[in-house]
Amino acid sequence: MATDLKFEYLREKALSREIPDDAPAPTLELDSLDTLWLQVTGTLCNLACLHCFISCGPKNDSHDMMELSTVDDALEWARDYGVKEYYFTGGEPFMHPEIKTMIRRTLDQGPLSILTNGLLIDDEMAGWLADTFESSRYSLDLRVSLDGTTPEENDALRGRGTFEKIITSIERLWDHGINPVVTVTTQHAGAGGEAKRREFFEFVRSRGIDKPRLKFLSPFKIGREERRDRGYEDHERLVEGDLGDTGGEHLQCSSCRMVTSEGVFPCPILIEEEDARMGDTLEDGMESIDLDHPACYTCHVDGVTCTT
């Protein structure tokens, strides 16, 4: 595919260049705030996956759960501005005691995707989500993370026994009328390749979901993933000129911002990174950003977008 060829070219180009130590990072303007991310449960999660790029877990409260009023403020600002789509992530969003209210209020003003590990979606919640999906004016998507087609593959990253629980949640959503997007990170062997991707499609289909929807995400070598595997090499950073003629329009941070209990950040990846915080309000987040973090390199050379 031409898109793959493009990013292969960008990777080769990035590897073959020489970067002076003092080369400045590119600056990127916010073209349009189309995508608003809300870190509704902060860094609190009921799992502690080994490849998590923000070290989320039961004990990480560096970003606390968002108050309902903080979510309401962000939604009001976004409505006045004209945001196109909304995303909830965490941590695990379904740990939030007011998650249903947040979902309803968000869906009243635009389409919503929720990134979840699925473990807390019981029959009652699946039924409520299906009713909400059916009755809402705007679209609702559930993105459920799965990291292997076998318990061995998945549980090595997401924790013992999680494979069966995740599959059960995916099937439960499907049975209630919601077709979730199964999200796969490409950490484990071969998941970035075409053959393994097809295997994932076939696997999901084999569980009775005859319209499989999948999303594959490249790893970010920060957070717990940095400790599991490795961090970024010195050359894995962006400098002025790397973005080429098209600028940064392929980067999600040209059209997104993230709100957490701690303030506003450029994107969902950088919330625990030093100097990434842009301010208290979305108004502060309208400024341009310096692409001076190594994770920005992954978004550029792999063409990563966190959107569905």
Partner: peptide
């Protein structure tokens, strides 16, 4: 289903 009113107004 993915084009909210405020977004279309901005456009």
């Amino acid at each position: 289903s993915t084009s909210p009113d405020p977004f279309l107004d901005r456009m």
